[in-house]
């Protein structure tokens, strides 16, 4: 069993007994896709909603609109089928409390919206989510059964 680590604006795919982990999701989103027939799992750590608004968009995994389709392609390359894929997402929190600062407050929300739109466009069903609120999350996706553990400092561990 290998644990694949995904950093900010990175992605990984795996199968069988492997897992994919991303540590410390704040307002970023961990998008997890799973094909249960082939036991193929994929995760991308999305940072921003839209690549078309960005001056620096060479890393496609940074954005929801390019990261989600690319993850699907990478999973298909190792044998997964888009038609069988289901999705679980986590993150999109608002980390900072009480402030008159502008955009930083809404970015989690915008990310959640953008990711859901992308999944819809790709025809992939969202079957579970742990999003929003104001705390950081560490998530791990298991290729064996598609389960996703969500861990936080304030609330401990749960499985979705």
């Amino acid at each position: 069993m290998t644990q694949h680590k995904v950093g900010i604006a990175e992605a990984a795919v795996c199968d069988k007994n492997d897992t994919i982990i991303t540590i410390g999701l704040g307002s970023c989103i961990g998008v997890c896709l799973y094909d249960s027939t082939k036991k193929i799992a994929g995760m991308v750590h999305i940072m921003l909603p839209d690549s078309t608004n960005s001056r620096n968009n060479t890393n496609r995994f940074k954005f929801a609109d390019t990261g989600v389709p690319d993850l699907i392609t990478n999973m298909e390359k190792i044998g997964a089928s888009k038609l069988r894929m289901v999705a679980k997402i986590a993150g999109g929190a608002q980390m900072f409390s009480s402030s008159n600062t502008s955009d930083i407050m809404k970015i989690g929300e915008r990310n959640i919206e953008a990711v859901k739109q992308q999944l819809k466009n790709s025809g992939i069903k969202l079957i579970a989510e742990d999003t929003g609120d104001n705390f950081g999350r560490t998530i791990e996706l298991f290729a064996e059964d598609g389960s996703l553990t969500v861990k936080s400092i304030k609330f401990g561990k749960k499985v979705i």
Partner: peptide
């Protein structure tokens, strides 16, 4: 909270 979550949130603005 978790450093990754906090730093990530701020870097997001700058990530563009």
């Amino acid at each position: 909270d978790m450093s990754g979550a906090i730093i990530g949130n701020v870097l997001q603005l700058y990530g563009e």
